[in-house]
Nucleic acid binder design. Structure first.
Lengths: 130, 130
DNA sequence: ATCTACACTTACTTTTGGGTAAGTACTTGT
DNA sequence: ACAAGTACTTACCCAAAAGTAAGTGTAGAT
């Protein structure tokens, strides 16, 4: 989580618009390169940090933890740490995170329609949302 | 539309994941700071370029046109230009764009629920989706 | 003759997001 | 003694996204 300068035009515009546009509000919580993919993984149930890392090979640890922390701060996921050594940490969807399933499902529907218009279709769809 | 270097790790990861993840596929078409807001404006029907500009005060012309072009290339919106002077150009949702309404509606639903958990609620919602 | 509106376009700078690579602390297995 | 696995953290770099500010060409209004 790199520090964010609070007083920049970009930031100002962002927060200002967020107040008016629920779509932007959602996009800010779902956006970023990896969040959808991480969420994707958690839809099937809770996973350990290392399970997530292995499930998403191209992600770097920095990006994974960064987005996990952000989504935790946004109350989309819940972190549970067992006080043992070696550490045992799991992440799962919060209630708000679970409710996102409708949004994600709508996206998958649309993506399939749209993707078909241009050619092939997605393969991992069925196994990812349930 | 700034030129994109085709061979970068970032780009490689992006396109690779897009093939597997329909959610990422959608996010790429909906993402970016302004696209949701522009879409928002077009949900109620077609609008002229200048109407959009005035409807979204903080957007710069560069950003507006850039995203309009991108969304046109993505077949989300349709540009119609009357060959008159001064120019008369309107933008409206394509069929694919219209179909996005389900996705956007799901987002708005979620945003309201989530926003209530933390305090107030959105005001522009009702007039924006119909 | 200058101003405004229209729909853009261009060049340049800043901000942010993501990638690379290394290190931390503690423990179990070889 | 050393490697491997756990869940992170840190510093540094680059590329993409967004912002700033100016210019283009035409035509009607003042």
């Amino acid at each position: 989580m790199t520090a964010v300068k609070e007083s920049s035009t970009q930031n100002h515009n962002k927060t200002a618009n967020q107040l008016q546009c629920p779509v932007t509000y959602v996009m800010n919580k779902l956006g970023g390169h990896w969040k959808p993919i991480i969420l994707y993984q958690l839809l099937n149930g809770s996973k350990r940090y290392s399970e997530l890392r292995r499930a998403i090979p191209p992600i770097t640890e920095k990006m994974l933890i960064q987005h996990l922390k952000q989504m935790e701060a946004d109350n989309l996921i819940i972190r549970h740490a067992e006080p043992v050594v070696p550490p045992f940490v799991t992440y799962r969807l919060s209630e708000a995170g679970e409710e996102l399933k409708t949004v994600l499902a709508a996206m998958v529907d649309w993506a399939e329609k749209d993707y078909q218009r241009t050619g092939a279709s997605f393969e991992m769809v069925d196994e990812c949302l349930n």
